[in-house]
Amino acid sequence: MGSDHTSALVVIDMINTYDHPDAEPLVASVRQALPAVRTAIDTARRSGTDVIYVNDNFGRWRSHHDELVETALRGQYADLVKPVLPDEDSLFVVKARHSIFFQTPLEYLLQQNGIRHIVLCGQVTEQCVLYSALDAHIRHLELTVLQDAVAHIHQDLADAALRMMERNMGARLQHAADLKF
């Protein structure tokens, strides 16, 4: 457990093969967000704060953490995965739908570790990040979204999603370089 025992960084869907119809605009956005995601991960690790990867299973129902990582590293966009790989201290939760909470053990993990504040980064701003922020809000978790460390498919929807997270869900929007645990 880290120096801030009530916070965790949650990295959403960054272990990815980008093998889907919206990959082209998403890849371009991930390339822009990647340095900030890396900064957030480094900041959390340096402070000893938990880093929790919550990642889509891509319909591979028998997959586990190592297999998902290996598959992504063999893919066309391994350069987007390598800089943000989980380390030996990272926690890893596999999800099947948009929200990091939907039918995953994440809520239990957060409760067991006494985490009351989550910092979100990853992809996709107007989908998984937005739905996860809403689910965090209804669970009365304190929420920060790193606006420069989230990637989108549609810029206009991402901008609206960030405004919604801030206004409707009480999310604090901040930049990864300003993150402190």
Rank of each mutant, 00 (worst) to 15 (best):
D156R: 13
A33S: 10
D13I: 10
A78E: 08
F181N: 10
M1L: 02
D4Y: 04
P83V: 15
C128S: 10
H154N: 13
D87V: 10
N57Y: 15
L173H: 00
V51N: 03
R116V: 13
F102R: 07
R45L: 02
V11F: 06
A177D: 01
I52V: 03
T49N: 05
A40R: 01
A176G: 08
R46C: 14
Q112S: 12
S7R: 08
T39D: 02
H98G: 01
I15W: 04
I153G: 05
L34R: 07
V129E: 04
E126M: 10
E88C: 13
D159I: 14
L141M: 08
S3N: 15
L143Q: 01
P35I: 02
R60G: 11
L73F: 04
R167H: 14
S63N: 09
V129Q: 02
E107T: 12
H5C: 09
T6L: 02
L120Y: 11
F101W: 01
V11K: 12
H154E: 15
M1R: 03
V84D: 11
H137W: 00
V94A: 14
L110G: 04
Y131T: 00
L141D: 00
D156M: 11
E24F: 05
D56I: 00
V145D: 09
L26I: 06
L134R: 15
Y77A: 01
A161P: 04
M14V: 11
A36R: 01
V37I: 10
A161E: 03
Q123C: 03
S63M: 14
S47K: 12
G2F: 09
A36C: 01
T144E: 02
D56S: 13
I100P: 11
L26C: 01
T6D: 08
M169F: 15
I138G: 14
V150N: 05
L68I: 01
L130I: 14
Y108C: 12
A23L: 06
I153A: 05
L179S: 05
L109H: 08
N113W: 15
T43K: 04
G2R: 11
D156N: 14
Q174I: 08
L157P: 00
V69T: 05
N168L: 15
T43S: 10
G114Q: 12
G114K: 13
A176Q: 13
R172P: 10
M164L: 09
Q111L: 12
H20V: 13
T43A: 14
A136L: 04
E107I: 06
